[in-house]
Amino acid sequence: MVIFDKPHALADVPLHYCPGCTHGIIHRLVAEVIDELGIEGKTVGIAPVGCSVMAYNYFNCDMIEAAHGRAPAVATGVKRALPENIVFTYQGDGDLASIGMAETVHSAARNENITVIFINNAIYGMTGGQMAPTSLPGQITQTSPYGRDVNHCGYPIKICEMLSTLDGPEYVARVAVNNVKNVRAAKKAIKKAFENQVNGLGFSLVEVISSCPTNWGLTPEKALEWVESKMIPYYPLGVYKDRHADSNE
């Protein structure tokens, strides 16, 4: 009996991500959810700009590559045109929380019936490790070589906390993929974010605290420890908004 294998919705190709980068885990979780809900044939995914720019090669559903930060606007167009289809975006912290902030906030405010998978690893990975809107205070990056000085460039943006103040969004949750327990919880949240769309409930965003061993300058194992000891205390896990929490229990 097969206990674990590659989900069908995940393409059978090697991923380009660095060793130990948890993008691959999150890709797999999304694909598993697509399989379990039986929606691959009607799903359209939107890839961002950043490390996961080539996510369009990794999912077997139809895929669109968007301009930097614009995935929620592209998803809005697709969903308005094809309301029966399932539309998700997959975006990193630079894409979603910096250049695409307006698109993020407004698609949430409209309660656009889409699913947003937001990867927060506190750094711009693709361009070689620059400070992200979610880089931690004091975090050393290529563009904050002396550590992020909040007096100079401000504080990290907590997307879940911010979006949960809006009336619009249906579901906003933060999860992590640094250990087996958290990966399983992450999958549950991602599944709910897709189910909400299937059920017509509206904008569902799952922020996934992820790692970047290469640009953090840590081994894959140490990077996951850093997620636990530094990231999660600053970005507490949990459900920040769930309009139908009671009916789901």
Binding site: V44, I46, I64, A66, A67, R70, A73, V74, A75, T76, G77, V78, K79, R80, A81, L82, A102, E103, V105, H106
Partner: peptide
């Protein structure tokens, strides 16, 4: 049909990109 007032011209053209993709 759909009329949607976007949050910016940038968002509007990317919504166009989304529909055009379909």
């Amino acid at each position: 049909g759909t009329f949607l007032q976007a949050e910016s011209e940038i968002a509007a053209i990317n919504m166009v990109y989304g529909v055009a993709s379909t």
